[in-house]
């Protein structure tokens, strides 16, 4: 028996206990700090919300392998969100749990692509594919970030996301080439999601500051261009035409009105927090 087996275990930690090494952001001026905070919040909210939507498939995916795969990808996204919330909390002197669970639905800054409910399998595949490919473009623009703590975790996140990209690419090909019904459902899902397809790249209030500081390599508009190019190439390789004219990402994270679907999801994922604030589980 080793010593570790004879000693009592420490109490269970909360989902969002700080896991991120302490960093020193003292050399960032206030404007840059605020700009970085906005970027981190949008990224964290995206990962968090998608993680919860896709965990909705746990137990009921159309096949066991996908039950495991979607649950696994959802777990990855929640993990990424956790780190990003912790980074934001350190940067702003706040608390990651409070940011993740303590806001009203209208205060979340995830993109509108992630406002849609899970719907059917083809829809969840189409949405995750649109998101993962966009996220890859965004992560690529952050990998040489001058804000070292962000560049470090982006390096790690990209390695995990490579599996998501591979998996979703297989599914896009499977649905597009899988006969009449899968293809029809996939095309219908794409058409419904298309107006929101570029909302990951909704311009940020102070993205110019981020670019000047070398935190982000280029503008959201430029990243949206790259995404359109990427989507067009993949869809044409499976014989599907882009569902419509290029949608505008503008306002893609505004939440003047909260969709019913997100309000429902928020009610679910904040339930424990609202029942007992500060609870650990």
């Amino acid at each position: 028996m080793t010593a570790s087996e004879t000693k009592p275990r420490r109490a269970t930690r909360a989902l969002l206990t700080p896991d991120l090494p302490r960093f020193d952001a003292g050399d960032l001026d206030d404007a840059t700090r605020a700009a970085l905070a906005e970027l981190l919040l949008t990224m964290a909210d995206d990962e968090f919300v998608l993680g919860f939507w896709d965990s909705e498939w746990t137990g009921i995916a159309p096949m066991l392998e996908e039950d495991v795969a979607f649950s696994s990808m959802a777990q990855d996204e929640i993990g990424h969100a956790r780190l990003l919330y912790e980074m934001l909390a350190q940067l702003t002197g706040t608390d990651a749990d409070a940011i993740a669970f303590g806001r009203q639905p209208g205060e979340y800054r995830h993109c509108r692509l992630l406002d849609h409910p899970r719907t059917d399998w083809a829809f969840s595949v189409a949405r995750r594919w649109l998101y993962d490919t966009a996220d890859a473009v965004r992560l690529n623009a952050l990998r040489h970030s001058t804000f070292a703590p962000l560049a470090e975790i982006v390096g790690k996140i990209r390695r995990e996301e490579a599996y998501h990209l591979m998996h979703m690419d297989i599914w896009v090909r499977r649905l597009a080439g899988g006969g009449e019904e899968p293809r029809r459902r996939f095309e219908r899902a794409l058409a419904r999601l298309w107006p929101d397809a570029l909302t990951v790249f909704a311009p940020l209030a102070s993205e110019l500051r981020l670019i000047e500081a070398g935190i982000l390599s280029t503008s959201m508009a430029e990243l949206a261009d790259r995404q359109v190019e990427q989507l067009t190439a993949i869809l044409s390789s499976v014989g599907i035409t882009i569902p419509g004219p290029r949608p505008s990402p503008a306002g893609g994270r505004d939440r003047a009105t909260v969709s019913d679907s997100f309000r429902w999801l928020w009610t679910e994922f904040t339930m424990v927090h609202r029942l007992e604030e500060g609870a650990t589980w």
Partner: peptide, 8 residues
């Protein structure tokens, strides 16, 4: 069989 398994 599956790039995803019982743990990450």
């Amino acid at each position: 069989e599956n790039a995803f398994g019982p743990t990450l």
